[in-house]
Amino acid sequence: MVHAIAMDETSFRSVNILLAEDNEADVKITIRAFDKAKLKNNLFVVNNGEEAIDFLYQRGAFQDANKYPRPDLILLDIKMPKVDGFQVLEKLKSDPQLKLTPIIMLTSSKNEEDIVRSFTGGAASYITKPVNFEDFSKMVNGFNFYWQIINKLPPQK
């Protein structure tokens, strides 16, 4: 049986977050918002769905498990070249090893069909990116507070 270890009890291990985002500007904005929150997270960035899958399976350019650890949380854009967010979602949720990792859709789309599809596919949360940076920053703060203080993350092997 899986014994869930609460985040609160794991001392203060920094949380590894994987961001899959193809838009260069959005990557910079997200990194800056995380920096601004002054949190001790490791934020890893990949630029499309294919890289995201490589990262998660620690293959291709991401073979070094010390440099590229399994993430505790995944921030996933929907519209990406090669393999899109939904495909990544489907792939991870069908993998018994990776399916516990919470996936948070982080997208510009407010489209109802996208929202329904994300939750149906097993996403843990759906967040739309605000246009204004202050709002973006607040959103990241709220995100961190919820996922790292209130929520209890599943264990990492």
């Binding site: 838009n23 500007a25 959005d26 910079k28 904005i29 800056r32 510009s108 789309s109 489209n111 990116k129 605000p130 246009v131 204004n132 940076f133 202050e134 973006f136």
Partner: peptide
């Protein structure tokens, strides 16, 4: 219209955020 207005938001975010930076 839908996808255009949708795609417009990403560059807008860049404009607004980088002005802020």
């Amino acid at each position: 219209t839908y996808s255009a207005s949708h795609d417009l938001r990403a560059p807008l975010r860049a404009i607004s955020s980088f002005a802020q930076f």
